[in-house]
Amino acid sequence: MAAPPDDDVLWARELHYAYDGSPALQGVTLGVREREIVTVTGPRGSGKTTLLGCLSGRLAPKSGEIWFNSLPVHTLGRQSRERLRRDRFGWIGSEPQLVPELTAWENAALPLLLNGARQRTARSSATEWLERLDIADCARKRPAALVQSQRQRVAIARALASRPAVLFADEPTAPLHRTDRLHALRTLVSAARSHGITMLLATHDPAAGATDEVVGTSVADRRISLVDGRHARPTGAPDTKGSATCSLFV
């Protein structure tokens, strides 16, 4: 078992995963450095979500290794992976995935509360993030009373409020309109930059010409393209770091 490179916060080797026999990932290898923002691109069905799921410990890969710092994620049991996800990882899906009976601030504070934070602390932290995302006035409303873009911002606040080490964003802008997409992506990226959060961002196919792809290439440090569960081109090796264009053009 090869030890991961020292400067990689997240490192995966030869990941294989299959949904009931139909292969989704076929030998993906990648390494992500600390504070790096990596976009994972590819068409639908190329394995982006599965890759993020495996890396974040939601899915257990059929074979392959995943290391988070010096922790072998692929050997962890279900409960340990749960704890790791709760303590160190954040997740933003393409759907807001909010708990319908909780208000916006309670949803945003949920990871903190689950980690055992006191209610007052969790509340102030969640409210702070809601303010930064310009939805502080929705803090006491339930998800059903919000529009989709507001809900997605609550989901972003939830992912950021627990100060994760690594943030997994799986097409976080998919349900949004173009202006909302731009806004949400910029918020995410600038939050990750300012708080030193490592981020993996799955986005659509570049051929689709979507707005987030335009943003994604310009804000990300590196891009990984997947096709049919494999690398479209070998960019996974840590020594081939990309163009490092970190400009946020704001």
Binding site: V147, H177, V189
Partner: peptide
């Protein structure tokens, strides 16, 4: 299902007036 409810407000269809400024606050101040 609340997550599936499509936005029906007028803002859901209309582009917002100031989409660019909100990224700045995170960097600048809390």
């Amino acid at each position: 299902a609340p997550a599936r409810t499509e936005p029906t407000g007028p803002e859901a269809a209309s582009p917002r007036a100031v989409p660019d400024t909100a990224a700045q606050p995170v960097r600048q101040t809390r």
